[in-house]
């Protein structure tokens, strides 16, 4: 009976009418602005970027002469070399972090803060209704449990997207203010099919943001699941943040020894490894990772849905 839009409106009201939410928003803005100020204050200008690029290229050539290096690494270095040559030939300066675009790319590191905040919101979404006792008021309305849960999940994702948009905007604004916008027309050098092409820098920034979102979505979904299954916000925050910070390390150590590490969630959340890095385990590809992520995503949601639908609401 009640429509999804109204339910989402309700969920948003419950998020943004709370003081804690605004503290998180404030911290995010602060992180983005401070990041720009710190870079402005500490960055050292390179005197001659051409000499540096040339030195880097020579270094790469030396390594490439060694035939024992694995093919993956070889491809990666080859790509680097080609781009370096293109830079020297067409006079395209490497992007530095004290430029408008450079800072935007760097700001993608702050996404882990967005992930943390989204985990907190996701963890509270269902669990708080139980701890406040309001779940008893919420579930006796003409709205199915599935619809209520969906509205909560959508609201969590909306929160994440809003935070990302805010981060991007604040970073762009502070970048423009502190570093200027003279370099805004510079292209991004992408390596496609053995050749270097100049592409839109904005598209590249959005791509970096998007690739960084895999663990954001996965961990928010994970926290949402724990929150629903155990009805305990602290547990959900704890488990999800522990996974956020420790998961990748553990996965890395496991991947050194075991091949099956590639099926672990955190081996696949860093999608940027396929764009300008090296896969964690040999043989991993972007479609493989996307498939693994999809399986985890469906599993988390299935558990959440099933528990919320079936379980009795007792004191």
């Amino acid at each position: 009976m009640s429509n999804l839009f109204s339910l989402i409106q309700n969920e948003n009201m419950k998020i943004y009418r709370r003081f804690g939410t605004w503290v998180m928003i404030g911290l995010l803005v602060l992180a983005s602005v401070t990041g720009a100020i710190i870079i402005k204050a500490t960055h050292k200008e390179t005197n001659d970027w051409k000499a540096e690029v040339a030195a880097d290229s020579n270094n790469i050539r030396k390594i490439l002469k060694d035939n024992n290096i694995p093919k993956i690494q070889k491809d990666h270095l080859q790509k680097q070399l080609t781009i370096n040559e293109y830079r020297l030939k067409h006079d395209v300066k490497p992007m530095e972090s004290n430029t408008f675009w450079g800072y935007l790319i760097n700001s993608a590191d702050i996404i882990s803060l967005v992930t943390l905040f989204t985990i907190i919101v996701a963890a509270g979404s269902v669990a708080s209704e139980f701890s406040w006792g309001t779940i008893k008021m919420l579930l006796i309305r003409p709205a199915s449990r599935a619809k209520i849960l969906l509205s909560k999940y959508i609201t969590v994702l909306m929160f994440a997207v809003s935070m990302l948009a805010l981060l991007l905007m604040i970073s762009a604004a502070s970048g423009a203010l502190l570093f200027g916008v003279e370099t805004i027309r510079e292209p991004y050098l992408a390596y496609q099919n053995g050749a270097v092409v100049e592409t839109s820098m904005l598209a590249h920034v959005l791509q970096v943001y998007a690739l960084n979102c895999a663990d954001l979505v996965m961990l928010a979904t994970f926290a949402f699941m724990i929150s629903t299954v155990f009805r305990n916000q602290s547990l959900a925050i704890g488990l999800a943040t522990f996974s956020l910070f420790i998961g990748p390390q553990i996965t890395y150590f496991l991947s050194l020894k075991f091949d099956w590490a590639k099926y672990i969630l955190f081996a696949n959340t860093d999608l940027a490894q396929y764009i300008d890095g090296m896969p964690l385990v040999k043989g991993m590809t972007m479609p493989f990772s996307l498939a693994v992520l999809l399986v985890y995503f469906v599993a988390f949601n299935a558990v959440t849905w099933w528990t919320f639908q079936k379980r009795d609401v007792a004191a």
Binding site: M1, S2, S6, L7, Q9, N10, M13, K14, R17, R18, F19, W132, G133, T134, K136, M137, L138, I140, R141, P142, A143, A315
Partner: peptide
């Protein structure tokens, strides 16, 4: 219905609580 105690969202005003529940019914 009120099941057990009337638990409401404490960080909202009484009116906002009512708006919340009003939105859930046509």
């Amino acid at each position: 219905a009120i099941v057990e105690n009337p638990e409401m969202y404490k960080f909202l005003t009484g009116y906002q609580n009512l708006v919340h529940y009003a939105r859930m019914t046509k």
